[in-house]
Design a protein around this nucleic acid. Sequence first.
DNA 1: ATGTTTATTGCAAACGTTTGAAAAAATTTG
DNA 2: CAAATTTTTTCAAACGTTTGCAATAAACAT
Lengths: 364, 364
Amino acid sequence: MQTFEKICNNFGVIKNHKTEMNSQRPVTIKDIAKKFKCSPSTVSRALNDHHLINEDTRKNIQEYAQKVGYQRNLVSLSLLNKKTASLGVIVPNISSYQESAMIDGLHSVLQPLGYTLNICVTNEQYILETEYVEKLLSNRVEGIFLSVSQETYDAGHYEHLENVIKRKVPLIFIDREYEGFETSRVTIDDYFGAFAAIEHLVLGGRKRIAHLKGPNGLTVSEQRFRGYIDCLKKYNLPIDEDLIINTNFRVESSIVPTTRLFDLPNPPDAIFGVNDQVAIGAMKVIRERGLQIPKDVAVIGFDNSPISPYIFPSLTSVARPGRRIGTEASRLFLNYLNASEDEFGVERIVLPSELIIRESSLNF
Amino acid sequence: MQTFEKICNNFGVIKNHKTEMNSQRPVTIKDIAKKFKCSPSTVSRALNDHHLINEDTRKNIQEYAQKVGYQRNLVSLSLLNKKTASLGVIVPNISSYQESAMIDGLHSVLQPLGYTLNICVTNEQYILETEYVEKLLSNRVEGIFLSVSQETYDAGHYEHLENVIKRKVPLIFIDREYEGFETSRVTIDDYFGAFAAIEHLVLGGRKRIAHLKGPNGLTVSEQRFRGYIDCLKKYNLPIDEDLIINTNFRVESSIVPTTRLFDLPNPPDAIFGVNDQVAIGAMKVIRERGLQIPKDVAVIGFDNSPISPYIFPSLTSVARPGRRIGTEASRLFLNYLNASEDEFGVERIVLPSELIIRESSLNF
DNA sequence: ATGTTTATTGCAAACGTTTGAAAAAATTTG
DNA sequence: CAAATTTTTTCAAACGTTTGCAATAAACAT
């Protein structure tokens, strides 16, 4: 129960700040009741437009509440109703285009329904992921959307998720899933997208196709990798270990690997990046070698990020409907709420990806 | 008080879902007390390692709590302590690099202190901004970090913020501020960055410098614009209205304006974009016109986004320390907590920006 | 055995709100 | 004017947790 202790300690830290000094107590229903010499119940009903309340008292109380800036305390309401109207969203890092698109999708469906999204960023750290899960459960969120962090794969632990299931809090994987865990998820068919990308290159006459792979273990990395491998196999092209190098999704992480590729005695004539960032980094190295894109080397990225059509040469990329992950996951969540105990089931939604062909992979 | 009604209605919507069916009640301290035939207080103390508790009972209770997956209810604790340990963060859109950097900065300081960030995305809408402010206050957050939405500028309303001040909840503007409002803020010296960028162009011999301006009214737009104007004035260059066109920060929003610029009888020899996205869009148009960058046209962006060094030609840009906005704003918040009533004051922190010169603006 | 100290535990109130049922007040009816 | 009815308000409990103070139990000294 170390996480529990941690939370306590943190609470301790906060307690030490003397916030009391400069934050005046918000006005409560009791305060208003005292002012009007009536009971809190009357005030409550007046503010909620209850039909069994005198029209004058209602008006008076509402006006006064307005004037003094009364805001009902949702914390106490949550406690009373055992409903917090808030949902947890855990993502590895908020700065990637894909993830902000997912969040946007969740947001677009759930915000209008009155839910508050509690967004947590793990920075790919397992320890933060577990802490956030605990904290969200302690805060009694009504559901958790989780995009698994890299370290969690590496560690292979998922006890923190068992807890969520045990509590029967809906848990939905978004984009990054843990294969072996029995819960609903919305992912994208990265395998197909990768396969299509490689096939496009092969049909364009490319023989030595390199892959700037993502971190090992991540489903998204591995699926794209499998698509790459399977397509090469289909066309009886050799699989060269030297042409497969890891990156970490960031643009700068592809510089050294790409340099290494072109230092090979037999360098590649095409590069398939695990995402657009990595592909853009590779393009720079290729240019600096004096090679032409796509004549000498074709390049394909993944994500179809907003700038991919605008850079030079425009970047062929696999479009993945990040925003739809969010909307579909929301739908799953809402279905879950409306489902009765017995008809509850694990749903796995796989959204299609699509190859968008641009200049960087044109045939010569 | 329409927002209040709105929240009620939303709560109504949620209530209708029959969550009761498939979410089992979490185990409480009372449940444990019943099991051990002792009082809740004993259980509470046992779980909190209180010194006045028998070692055996402590161990037994803790073990049992662990086994049944007890998680203390932070909602009730918040109510009791009048401390929620949560903070509101309101930003216009989460997908921009700058904003995720800010959030990352806030996060890095406040998460370790035990705070939960409640991130809200307004999509630049005034109505959403007000709703979020109300909701955060109702949820009794202990502070609000706000990056003002575009519509809020346009409307010029800020009554929703008066409410925050009245409640003495610390309100801190991050990056996008409302000039006329008396509260602390952390911004970036965009004026200086813009000035430096234009000066660099002027000294490089550019005579007709166009500006792809951001939306009118936003401080960030206007400051960059002022830097542009003032620098031109300093060097006695004429200010040509035709060379100033609005965009909305997105890459595609610069295509039409840039096209218009090069349809002018006297087209520009340099373009200063309000951000990197816009600059990248402009570069595409320039290339397609058969013009060379930087020989025929120099281009400068703003933000120094991660890919700016890697695109072709590499993009000169003004670096702005987005992450530091977050850390400084956190510092301001923590100072505020520790300050006594009388020494409370409004602080305005302006972080420096820095011109990073790359290929796209080299002299010929 | 009795008083004194010490170690454990329980009681009760509090946080802010809602809500069914009971009570009180106002109105109508005979 | 009393009884019956309707309108309006109050009471009390509940949500889960903590905590000062009182109470009990155990251990010890006299």
